[in-house]
């Protein structure tokens, strides 16, 4: 049971979002710009993967499964592949640039000061642009907010991971902005 009476029985972040629409609107707009807007040199799959990985590091079951399923959908891979990245991205079949960005995201998860000049240099050597580094840091920071919002209010998360996979195509199609929380 959630820590407060949300007046709905929606899972994960959808519960507090339906409870407080005034804050749900900018939260969803932020997710839309960072994760789904196509005016970005990082693919939607890359950006969802950063979100899923940070959520995994924060041990947020709901967010890591929602965004892991989104990454899986865009990358056209299976859950096993996403789980492998979470366990050890350095050994995964992803680009060296993505590995260097995930290393930055992991540092952000620990704290802003953990992002060292060496990590940034590594990403720049892999030809990551300033905007890509900026977006990686902001996506990772945003998930440090989303994860805390979801777990800090004690929301419930469905345990069947396939449910998240099944919902991903619809979310990819409709996006985050103007999200119908009840659908």
């Amino acid at each position: 049971m959630a820590h407060i009476n949300l007046n709905n029985d929606l899972p994960g972040i959808r519960g507090p979002m339906a409870y407080r629409p005034e804050t749900a609107k900018p939260l969803n707009e932020l997710a839309e710009i960072l994760l789904r807007d196509d005016n970005n040199t990082l693919s939607r799959g890359d950006r969802e993967l950063i979100g899923a990985y940070v959520s995994y590091l924060n041990d947020c079951f709901f967010c890591q499964n929602v965004h892991g399923a989104m990454a899986q959908h865009y990358m056209q891979c299976d859950m096993h592949f996403i789980d492998g990245i979470k366990q050890d991205f350095t050994a995964a079949a992803i680009s060296d640039k993505m590995k260097s960005l995930l290393a930055i995201a992991a540092a952000v998860q620990k704290g802003g000061k953990h992002v060292t000049a060496a990590l940034i240099d590594q990403a720049k050597e892999q030809e990551a642009t300033d905007t890509e580094i900026h977006d990686t840091v902001l996506i990772a920071a945003a998930f440090c907010m989303f994860n805390r919002y979801v777990d800090g209010l004690g929301t419930f998360a469905p345990q069947d991971r396939q449910l998240y996979v099944n919902r991903a195509p619809q979310r990819a199609e409709e996006g985050y902005a103007g999200l119908d929380l009840y659908k």
């Binding site: 952000v108 802003g112 900026h134 840091v137 920071a141 945003a142």
Partner: peptide
């Protein structure tokens, strides 16, 4: 979010 954004860059 803010603290990580500010210090992370």
């Amino acid at each position: 979010l803010y603290n990580r954004y500010v210090d992370g860059l």
